[in-house]
């Protein structure tokens, strides 16, 4: 059996390398606005984490009453919109690029899982805002979870939703995004389709 330590060491030398994360050269095709969409999504996540830390530090009552904290809540709200907006544009870009080619299937899959996880992460945030939208969606969405046997997730329990939104879901999301970015950096972004005519139809399916 191979030496696990050696194998881990070799892999980590790539994953933790500054060369991996801070390239000084990029492929010529990976320039322009289309190649900012992933970074814009990741940047939105950073804004969400920072504004979220400010909100969590002051607690749920602060963002309902305090003017300054309402502003922080606003940045968190618009950060979510930016996150999904850029993620959706990024998703379209990578789809039309066939970004899973060249052994990048797992990168695509992790991105898809990040998209899936982002939905309950955002949703639980809406549930602890304390307004009509929170109230309505907590009592409406519970029926779907209950029907699927997921009733232990109690959308009307603000304590559980706070924990889910502030710790559990963003932590999972951050790990998935981290793995996604690691693969993007290690495998690089997918090169274009060859400009030659398509001759290999049916091969490699």
């Amino acid at each position: 059996m191979a030496n696990w330590t050696e194998a881990s060491k070799q892999r980590l030398q790539i994953v933790l390398s500054a060369d991996t994360w801070l390239p000084t050269e990029l492929p010529e095709y990976a320039r322009g606005f289309m190649y900012m969409l992933g970074s814009l999504t990741a940047s939105s996540f950073v804004v969400l984490v920072l504004s979220g830390i400010l909100l969590a530090m002051n607690g749920p009552t602060s963002w309902s009453y305090n003017g300054a904290m309402r502003f922080v809540a606003a940045t968190h709200f618009w950060g979510v919109q930016a996150f999904f907006f850029f993620m959706m544009l990024h998703l379209w870009r990578v789809f039309f690029s066939g970004a899973w080619r060249g052994g990048r299937g797992l990168t695509w899959l992790l991105g898809a899982i990040a998209f899936l996880m982002a939905i309950p992460t955002a949703f639980t945030g809406f549930l602890i805002n304390g307004d009509l939208y929170s109230q309505w969606n907590a009592v409406q969405a519970k029926d779907g979870l209950n029907a699927l046997g997921l009733g232990w997730v109690n959308l009307t329990d603000a304590g559980q939703m706070f924990g889910m939104h502030v710790v559990v879901l963003p932590l999972i999301l951050a790990i998935i995004i981290g793995l996604h970015l690691t693969l993007v950096r290690v495998k690089s972004v997918v090169p274009p389709y060859p400009s030659a005519p398509i001759l290999d139809e049916g091969q490699g399916e």
């Binding site: 990029l26 010529e28 320039r31 090169p191």
Partner: peptide
């Protein structure tokens, strides 16, 4: 065949 090979690396301030 599915992935272009003819591209250059260009300087970039990541």
């Amino acid at each position: 065949r599915d992935v272009a090979q003819d591209y250059r690396l260009v300087p970039e301030d990541f």
